[in-house]
């Protein structure tokens, strides 16, 4: 993956009357990566996306998408960027295939090429057997798949997905996510997706940006985010030992990598800076106690989310 920024935002700001939807956002998205915009509803994710497409004007700040400014060259930007809006809509009285062909016509794709691509894409997103049925008979998940095909028919450099998994059942989400990942790897496309679903973002994204109240709090790979956030105690070991008395606790705390030990029912939560499971096990066993359980706990997005959105902000 080359480290070339394909989307660059500098101090981007959008104000509606007295509400600041996006506040001095500075962000770079690199060629070929999957970037997740994560944040609760109303955090400014959709507004940012609309600005990237030139569909709404920023109050201040600079944008560069594929080297173009969306505010002044929206059509050129839209030729390179595919956008799947939240709750995508299709012409219900047309079939899925007809909808795709219409999109192709808007992108000046010659009919023969368009038909070939549409058939291939419908096959790829798994709705080829329903391609000739009217869209009004499609389920939510099928429409979302059709939406993916709809943006891919233009062969864009960047695809932007706004809440792509909203309202789809878990199995559908799983399939959709693997489809997105597959497509991105296969075609080397940059993917920008917004979501408020932690686990989905965690599964798919190379890097995430955390949005709260129009501000970007932090951006980076999830592991890095977790590390920044839990710098002092990045690792948590859960230990169950018999007997777990005060003496054992003080012995464990004596280890230089352990920051603190907290008693949690019958278990001990050991916050440490490095993975020292082996040393801890040795300490317990040498003390003559019985070690019945030891597990390492990684910080996932859930913890990050909670820290930022509940404790932090």
């Amino acid at each position: 993956m080359s480290k070339e920024a394909i989307i660059e935002l500098t101090e981007l700001t959008k104000k509606y009357d007295d509400i600041t939807a996006v506040d001095r956002l500075t962000l770079s998205v690199y060629q070929g990566e999957i970037f997740g915009l994560l944040g609760p509803n109303g955090a400014g994710k959709t507004t940012t996306i609309l600005m990237l497409l030139g569909l709404c004007e920023p109050t201040a700040g600079k944008m560069k998408v594929c080297g173009l400014d969306p505010t002044y060259q929206p059509i050129l930007v839209k030729e390179k960027v595919g956008y799947l809006p939240d709750e995508v809509g299709f012409y219900e009285n047309l079939s899925g295939l007809e909808n795709l062909l219409f999109t192709a016509a808007l992108n000046r794709i010659p009919p023969a090429t368009a038909r070939r691509r549409a058939e291939a894409l419908l096959e790829q997103v798994g709705i080829a057997d329903r391609a000739r049925d009217k869209v009004q008979t499609y389920s939510r998940g099928m429409k979302q798949r059709l939406g993916l095909a709809d943006i891919l028919i233009r062969e864009p450099e960047i695809i932007i997905l706004d809440e792509p998994t909203n309202g789809i059942d878990p199995e559908g989400v799983r399939e959709l996510i693997s489809l997105i990942r597959e497509l991105s790897r296969e075609r080397g496309m940059t993917v920008l997706l917004s979501s408020h679903h932690l686990y989905q973002v965690q599964q798919i994204c190379d890097r995430v940006g955390l949005f709260v109240d129009g501000k970007l709090i932090d951006a980076g790979p999830i592991k890095e985010l977790a590390y920044n956030l839990f710098k002092n105690d990045p690792l948590l070991l859960e230990v169950e030992a018999e007997p777990a008395d005060e003496q054992l606790i003080s012995l464990l705390e004596a280890n230089e990598h352990v920051s603190k030990v907290v008693r949690n029912g019958s278990r001990l939560n050991i916050h440490c800076r490095q993975d020292i499971s082996a040393e801890i096990a040795a300490t317990i066993v040498n003390r003559g106690a019985r070690l019945t359980h030891l597990s390492r706990h990684d910080y996932g997005l859930d913890e990050i989310y909670h820290r930022y959105f509940e404790g932090g902000s």
């Binding site: 956008y83 299709f90 999109t103 939406g147």
Partner: peptide, 14 residues
Amino acid sequence: SRGTLSRLLAQPIP
């Protein structure tokens, strides 16, 4: 209301 307007406007057309 059908959600097709935003999709239409995301196409490279004026």
